[in-house]
Design a binder for these strands. Structure first.
Lengths: 332, 332
DNA sequence: AATCACTAGGCGAACGTTCGCTGCCCGCGC
DNA sequence: GCGCGGGCAGCGAACGTTCGCCTAGTGATT
């Protein structure tokens, strides 16, 4: 309650003094190494726990030249998909005894301004990049600069960076195949920003599935879903459409709402399939058929790869794609 | 591409050598202090940037006895509400030049086992606690131990910890008042775990609103929503119920679905109001009236308080409550 | 009795900083 | 001509570790 004095942390020297040995011996004991008699060893451990000794990783890092800490450079933590990735990554790091320093980068300040330097100053052993929104930001690519191993969860302009993600083309393929299998012939696709890799890849999967089924690809069936009204227009323009593939679940929810407004029943009048399997997908009306993306596992794998690169010192830019699968619900 | 050698970071000494001065002088210049001539100053800056000097915060922390890093001990990052808190907190920290070390604590391992020690070893200057699920875990309370300032986003067993949160009683009050104002007399409440503070507080708000309106409190109108079937039973048992206050939006969604199953229309047959204003609330059918909780701002304030405690050295356990407000949508 | 091989533990250095003190040189005022 | 103060820079110490090398004992072996 009263204002305490700084209450200095206890150091090896404190422990040593109390145990009547040199601080180096204490260090040996506490790290399990060296040749020290069983009695002193026990005494030191005793004293250390009595005094509540907590090793100072800062000092250790200084001499060891690695911090056992990785940086996480993420876009928006509150994005549901991203946060699942992060949870997976953090758990894996923890499992291997690493700390995670998080920095979000927002639109105002390009990450290169503040976030990256802040990580480098803290001498992180590696960096996990999870900021899809700056996939094309060349400043990021330049700034990374290979001082430490980097694993990205999305494509990086310029390449040369290890990447872990899911197979987005497969995603589009599975979704569309599912609709084809249900007997649909006029299948529209609602997409997000064209420039994004995900969009491109999922679109490619869609085309591939159509091709497989011998169906023609029609550019007029491709709509940008970020414009709310576009879906409605699409449906009015091409009434034959009996199924819609939305490139992500948020878009799919928009589509569901557009269909409801038009008085169309799902799935009888028009089937809908989404992507990502966000939490909400199970609770829409009707529940959304979607492609499950293993975000949690992706984060885990990415961290595992990063730590592997760190400990092995290798920088070979691998690329890892995790499988996805369809979850069939009421909307198809 | 080829396996590089460790590629040592450049230090003040490297800069100093190249600039022909002592490393201490370099340090002075780079930190803006001391009396150094304009020419040397310029030269040092030049060399530093040529060499790509990045200060080592580990070393600095060692001598300064503070790391400019805070620990974030959180429950589940992927929880939407929690992640909004976190985003707010992280931004505020960044704004003030602090790094954030994140650790999640899961059910398997009590946070005290790994997470806390890991933060203490890294000598964080303070800890932000955001793990509502271990609100009653006395081990946490004991482990915190006041070595560094702590701010919690939820109640801590034993007290004595600064807390920032939102006014949960007000939340329950506003929600229920809204229903009363709409003319409802038989208002049920669906709650989460009784032991949780939030539940208790929101329930209290509910009772208070009833009292204000001169309505009796009836224990039979209180249902535990975690049991899916309970809501259905409740409605069948007491058909007079014309409005339901769900203590959080997830419960509210369950309620909506129960009502749909029973063939009741919302809001005509039964009105529903939730709490939290999760993203999904705007997209349910019908859109959910709910109480908006300023998660982002709460995180921000909590971090601000923590940093204030750190820099001022004060440990007075303040308690801060942020206001909430109702968002009226289609469900009432 | 001198050598040997261990065992137990100490010692100095280094990691990259910050900080306070000292010392030099120069110009100024008396 | 002498002392002095101020501007500039260097120096040593400290922060809390790890690590490799050194030394003082202790039995056992020749």
């Amino acid at each position: 309650m009263a204002s305490r004095k700084p209450a200095r942390h206890v150091s090896v020297k404190d422990v040593a003094a109390r145990a009547g040995v040199s601080f180096q011996t204490t260090s040996k004991v506490l790290n399990g190494g060296g040749t020290v008699s069983e009695v002193t060893r026990a005494r030191i451990h005793q004293v250390a726990s009595d005094l509540g000794y907590v090793p100072n990783l800062q000092a250790r890092s200084l001499v060891m030249q690695r911090t056992r800490t990785v940086g996480l450079l993420a876009g928006d933590f509150s994005d549901q998909n991203l946060s699942r990735l992060i949870v997976g990554a953090e758990r894996e790091a923890r499992r291997q005894g690493y700390g995670v320093l998080m920095t979000s980068i927002d639109l105002e300040v390009s990450g290169t301004e503040y976030a990256l330097p802040s990580l480098m100053e803290r001498r992180v052993d590696g960096i996990l990049l999870a900021a899809p929104q700056m996939e094309e930001d060349r400043a990021v690519a330049r700034a990374l600069d290979k001082t430490v191993p980097v694993v990205s969860l999305h494509h990086i302009a310029g390449g040369g960076v290890a990447t872990v993600g899911s197979d987005d083309e497969l995603t589009g393929l599975l979704a569309t195949r599912h609709l084809v299998a249900k007997g649909h012939r006029a299948i529209a696709i609602v997409i997000g920003p064209r420039a994004r890799r995900v969009t491109q890849d999922r679109l490619r999967g869609y085309r591939k599935a159509l091709e497989e089924a011998g169906l023609p690809f029609d550019e007029r069936l491709v709509t940008d879903g970020s414009d709310g009204a576009a879906t409605v227009e699409l449906l009015q323009r091409v009434p034959a459409i009996s199924a819609i593939f939305a490139e992500n679940d948020h878009l799919a929810i928009g589509v569901l709402s557009a269909l409801r407004d038009l008085g169309k029943r799902v799935p009888q009048d028009c089937a809908v399939v989404g992507c990502d399997d966000i939490e909400m997908a199970a609770f829409t009306v009707p529940p959304l058929t979607t492609i499950h993306i293993p975000f949690y596992e992706t984060g885990e794998q990415a961290m595992r790869l990063l730590l592997e690169m760190i400990t092995s010192g290798s920088v070979a830019p691998r690329k890892l794609l995790l499988p996805v699968h369809l979850i069939s619900r009421g909307s198809t």
